[in-house]
């Protein structure tokens, strides 16, 4: 059904917005106007809509509660944290928890900036590797004809069903046999073979019209040119989505059974050491939570409209 849908040239949906182009008298495009997408829905009652909105806000409050709570707690002075009964919203906001956090972090044997650098390096490099490798593999796996293509695609679908802990010990043997243990290679190399990433991008490539690729080939473009100049720019929303999931995963990378050297460990690991003190560090641990949230949430906000568009096309097809 989606394949047959003919896109009207006048409107283009971007996330939850609808782009509306304006033309001058001669039919040239002057500018795009972003217009909110308001659906004229059939089969809806006003009362039902109101009840739903109320219900959703209630559930949304529950979902977001721990987050709001962590933010609020991170600004609470120590005596307010143990108020009885506890306050949900902070009364006398203070930055002391954040100051404490940085004091603790500045007294670690390995400088705090080293952990930060480690996490940034792993997050950026691995995200980049995932995108490049998955996009390149998705092109032939979706658009080319070759022997064994069906089997490989089936294998990738099945591999999504293996839960990570189920193969931990076997993985460890493979990593140590290959000599990857205790180096960042344990993050970097497997990032090339992420089946989740491939699956996401392949769903998007599947939707890309064959006719465009054929036309390019007839014009004499080679596979690399087609991939780089046609496919990649058009898959921008796909890799934007992957950025969000990937940044979320790698940014939160904590203690790892493959990494022993302290100077190779991540920010989340270092911060975990602080929160491990439990009740005594409750205020600081909330500050830690907030600090760790910032990057993934910013990534989400920046790419939000792109995500929503991309996720729609990553359906499962065998």
């Amino acid at each position: 059904m989606k394949m047959n849908k003919v896109k009207s040239p006048k409107q283009e949906t971007v996330g939850i917005f609808r782009k509306r182009p304006k033309y001058d008298e001669e039919g040239r495009l002057i500018y795009y106007k972003k217009k909110k997408l308001i659906k004229s829905r059939v089969n809806r009652s006003v009362g039902g809509d109101a009840v739903m909105l109320f219900f959703l806000l209630l559930c949304g409050a529950f979902m977001a509660f721990p987050m709001v709570y962590a933010i609020s707690n991170s600004f609470k002075p120590l005596h307010e944290l143990w108020l009885f009964p506890p306050n949900l919203i902070v009364k006398n906001p203070t930055l002391s928890n954040y100051k404490d956090m940085f004091t603790i972090l500045s007294n670690t044997t390995i400088p705090f900036t080293r952990y930060l650098f480690n996490t940034l390096f792993i997050t950026i490099t691995c995200t980049f590797l995932r995108i490049v490798s998955a996009s390149m593999a998705a092109y032939p796996l979706s658009k080319w004809k070759f022997k064994g293509k069906k089997a490989v695609n089936k294998l990738i679908t099945t591999s999504l069903m293996i839960s990570a802990p189920a193969a931990t010990y076997a993985s460890y043997i493979i990593y140590s046999t290959l000599g990857l243990v205790d180096s960042w290679l344990v993050y970097l190399i497997p990032a090339l073979g992420s089946s989740f990433s491939l699956y996401l991008i392949r769903g998007f490539v599947d939707q890309f019209p064959d006719s465009v690729l054929e036309a390019a080939r007839i014009d004499g473009a080679g596979d690399f040119r087609i991939f780089w100049s046609i496919l990649m720019p058009n898959m921008k929303p796909a890799w934007m989505t992957l950025i969000v999931f990937s940044v979320r995963d790698y940014w939160n990378t904590g203690a790892n059974i493959y990494i022993y050297r302290e100077e190779l460990k991540t920010l989340n690991y270092a911060l975990g050491q602080i929160t491990a003190e439990g009740m005594a560090r409750a205020g600081v641990s909330n500050a830690v939570e907030v600090l760790m949230m910032i990057v993934p949430i910013l990534t989400f906000l920046i790419t939000q409209s792109n995500i929503i568009e991309t996720m729609a096309t990553s359906g499962m097809k065998d």
């Binding site: 949304g60 979902m63 987050m67 962590a70 939160n252 904590g254 641990s285 760790m292 949430i297």
Partner: peptide, 15 residues
Amino acid sequence: LLFFAPSLSGGLGVV
């Protein structure tokens, strides 16, 4: 955003 936010941060379990 409200509903997706929890899955964006790894360690809200602390709360």
